[in-house]
Design a protein around this nucleic acid. Structure first.
Length: 96
DNA sequence: CCGCTGACTGCGG
DNA sequence: ACCGCAGCCAGCG
């Protein structure tokens, strides 16, 4: 009931909500943390983005921002003091 | 059941 | 460091 029964959809959203302000995680990080098979699953859930979650804290494996949403995303990240340079974030520094 | 798509990745050039 | 691409696999028609 704690987690096991929850749907993948809910678990992904819950995981994203655990990312503290000022930190980021990659799609792969979340997938591995939840024991999911692929990072794409995480992306698929976020793409539907039905609920208010800090989606901007989720990046690609190399720190790149989400294609097509980079403007909005970099604005949100910078608003919480995360540096974005050339469309990417330094994971060594901000990865949770 | 089949084929295509996608908010992904890792590897090779 | 920067592409390009094949591999993966859940979701949808």
């Amino acid at each position: 009931m704690t987690r096991a029964n929850a749907s993948v959809d809910e678990r992904v959203k819950a995981a994203v909500r655990t990312i503290p302000e000022g930190y980021v995680m990659t799609y792969g990080d979340i997938a591995r943390r939840l024991g999911l098979k692929t990072a794409r699953q995480v992306g698929t859930v976020l793409a539907r983005g039905s609920d208010p979650i800090p989606w901007h804290r989720v990046l690609h494996a190399n720190g790149m921002l989400v294609e097509g949403l980079s403007a909005e995303q970099s604005r949100l990240l910078r608003s919480e003091r995360i540096e974005v340079h050339r469309g990417r974030v330094n994971l060594k520094q901000y990865r949770w």
